[in-house]
Design a protein around this nucleic acid. Sequence first.
DNA 1: CATATACATGAACAGATGTTCATATATTCA
DNA 2: TGAATATATGAACATCTGTTCATGTATATG
Lengths: 118, 118
Amino acid sequence: MEETIRCDHMDETLIKQMMETLPGDEPISRMSAVFQALQSETRLRILFLLTNKDMCVCELNYALDVTQSAVSHSLRTLRQLDLVRGKKEGRYAIYHIADDHVRLLIEMCRQHVTEEHK
Amino acid sequence: MEETIRCDHMDETLIKQMMETLPGDEPISRMSAVFQALQSETRLRILFLLTNKDMCVCELNYALDVTQSAVSHSLRTLRQLDLVRGKKEGRYAIYHIADDHVRLLIEMCRQHVTEEHK
DNA sequence: CATATACATGAACAGATGTTCATATATTCA
DNA sequence: TGAATATATGAACATCTGTTCATGTATATG
């Protein structure tokens, strides 16, 4: 139906100022991609496991209830967003959390879902 | 094909200990839902706008390039996860960020996507 | 060199998601 | 009361996502 409303009490100029403080399309898009990656239960579990100890793919595969393929796909997503980093050691690929930023992100979210409401 | 690998150098007992430190299914599921909510560009923009100033639905609708319906749907999602809270004032519904936790989450993510790699 | 192990990746399909459209509800004001 | 404004919500559809399956590549080992 109607696409945009302009309510009576709105200070149009003020709102336009607020719009200019918004991050641009590209930062928003990247943030969206990061949260998108963190939304997967498998990828969350991978990050929690890597919080304790650097691990190779087959260790993660052993610890989680998904195929090795799924683990690799998940790691690829996390790698592309620089949430984890991997190094090749012989035939193993050892992964680790990219930085404390990532630890804080998931820890903060854990606190949010854990704490009592209000 | 094969579902689970057991690589040679794996310390099975150690990995099992790590598995026990994982958050349970319900916390993981809730975290997934929170990140899922934060993954939408529209919802991210709503949160950034609310960071500056409490706003009613039509102000958000005016500031964003989506229908009023989409704004309301987005707010519902954010409300259900306690990321924003709303109060009725006359015929307006004024929304605000739930707590500083939420501000930190998006601010931390913004820093992550902004900072230079490595 | 041949085989096994560890990991990566493309394809495909089922399930989930965000948007718009249509409409309902609630509040204000004339 | 009736009309306009502000918000909420159900339905539907197109798009996106995560997984598995199948297979490819690389390293190690016998």
